[in-house]
Simulated assay, not measured.
Amino acid sequence: MNPGQLAFDLPHRAALGAEDFLVSDCNLAAVRMVDAWPDWHGAVQVLVGPAASGKTHLVRVWQERSGADALDPSTLDISTLDARAPGAAIAVEDADRAGFDERTLFHLLNLAREKRLSVLLTARVSPNRWPFALPDLLSRLSAVPVTEIGAPDEALLRTVMLKHFSDRQLTIEPKVLEFLALRIDRSLEAAAAAVDAVDRAALRSGRKISRQLVVEALGPPATME
């Protein structure tokens, strides 16, 4: 690979099996909630966490175990829900952000109880902050169990970045990984973005990942005035 060559957006496949999920104190409650199915306390569960915190990974694990269908909240309608067989499992991601019709969501919550459905909703914020106004829906949501994924610790950040590099078939030395971890915000979204930036810089330059490459990819650290 020649220095300065173009970096193409080649797809990479993230490992999303149960054995690939990185368990830490911040997500242990979420893992236990998924593991507890089908003995949930309530037909509907809400999983809350920031972007890139592992919600989608846990949904995929739950789908594998439960046979759940993933439904798009922005296109979901009552007739689609009514067609679900008793005892079916349904996963709906980004329930707080994707234009969920209030009456459709209310119908889903009622149907879950009537047909003994298993429903897993994910969101970035708790249901009491969702942009809904229907009183009956708000009342029903207030009774739904919520499991939150918290902020990651430093060890998890490093491990997650190492997994991202591995998913892209890239290697990084431990000291360089530690250097990278110290230069990003403490969030899994920032970790994923940093890995992507370093990957692109490595592709463009044709060099292995080093401290200098990290600096070039992320820019110089902010300085105190």
Rank of each mutant, 00 (worst) to 15 (best):
E148K: 05
R204T: 13
S205P: 04
H12M: 03
V119H: 03
V31M: 11
P131F: 02
A43S: 14
R140L: 04
L121W: 02
A30W: 00
R183M: 06
M1R: 12
T75S: 11
L170P: 11
L16Q: 09
R158M: 15
Q45W: 06
V44D: 14
E154G: 02
V48G: 14
V198D: 07
L137G: 13
V31N: 10
M33Y: 06
K175W: 05
A83M: 09
E173M: 07
L16P: 06
A155C: 07
S24M: 02
V48E: 07
L76T: 00
P38N: 11
L138K: 05
P145V: 00
L28A: 15
H41D: 13
A14H: 06
H41L: 09
S142L: 07
H164V: 00
A83T: 11
L138C: 12
L81K: 06
I78N: 12
E64C: 05
P86C: 14
A151S: 13
L213E: 02
V23H: 13
H41V: 11
D167F: 01
I209F: 03
H57Y: 01
R200T: 15
A155L: 07
A18E: 15
R207M: 04
L121K: 01
L134T: 09
V119D: 08
D20V: 00
T147R: 01
I78M: 15
D196S: 12
E178Q: 13
E225L: 05
L156D: 10
D199Q: 10
H164A: 05
H41M: 10
A123T: 12
W62Q: 05
T223V: 11
D72Y: 08
L111W: 02
A83C: 11
L117P: 15
L108R: 07
R113K: 12
D20N: 11
T56A: 14
K208Q: 09
A7M: 01
A201E: 15
L180T: 09
W130V: 15
L105T: 03
P38F: 08
V125H: 08
E216K: 10
P127N: 11
S79R: 13
